[in-house]
Amino acid sequence: MKYRIIHSTRFAYDEPAYDSQNEVRLRPWDRDGQRCVEFSLGASAPASIHPFDDFFGNQAHSLSVSGHHKELEIAARSIVETAPPLAPGPCGVTFTEFLKDDALRGRACFEFLAESRYVPFSERLRRFFWMAHPEDGEDVADYAVRMARYVRDQFEYESGTTHVHSSLNDILATGGGVCQDFAHLTIGILRLAGVPTRYVSGYLAPPPAGSLAIDITAQASHAWLEAWLPGQGWRGFDPTHRCAIDGRHIGVAVGRDYADVPPIRGVFRSSGKSSKMTIKLSVEPSEPESSGDPGAGQSQQ
């Protein structure tokens, strides 16, 4: 499938802002059958933009706007081709076998096995893990699938119960959260089980026309996770939708957790007190035959 993505973030300030320095992660990646065939990043004010590869291999951009501006819109436009990912299946390795190499992986994949800012190994998380820990004879890949479902079954999808700076303790306490919280929680469980796991920031394309699938996420900006499975490598799982990723998942960046991959992170100077951020996002099929209806895409205001 081919999708057109327009992701615009508009900041409006009560007093002019200046010296705005930002780090942006908005370019969909090129790997695992996904190709970003077109990408442009622009700003509504004169900006200096430098691309770079970050520690996790994401293509990021540094974007700086020096002059005074009352508002700033940062817009990324991409055209992405996706291929259906490999179907999930057992990897043929049980936890007993898998954990024999635990020390080795502890070095090679340290950052994806250790706790991180949004995935602290809290008492709450440990207790939750003990209710769901893998059996010795369980296939590692099967466990990852089981957890992506299990986590979602325990909690409600509730926007508003948590916020962008929520840690997984919040979802464990409130019993509800959004895709980011489900991802963090599942990451925590898989890491405690010894499976290297990383956070994915990306988009979810609308279901094909005529499909009966119901999206509980009313937004196209999405988060899921990738677990490292023996013999299979990094495989994507979407706990929000209780499934392995399918061709509608468009990956942008990976990191230890949300803190490594926010779409835009930055600072600015202003004498004002407040700023307002508005996000407009649309993900829609870019082929004419599949997008005859311009309303087919999802958008979020």
């Binding site: 770079f52 540094s62 600072v267």
Partner: peptide, 22 residues
């Protein structure tokens, strides 16, 4: 650099890391 490190720091220069990288 508050963009790359402690966001509350006023001692450095915002955007410095990107300048070094460039």
């Amino acid at each position: 650099d508050p963009v790359a490190f402690r966001p509350d720091s006023l001692l450095g220069a915002p955007g410095l890391t990107a300048v070094l990288r460039a």
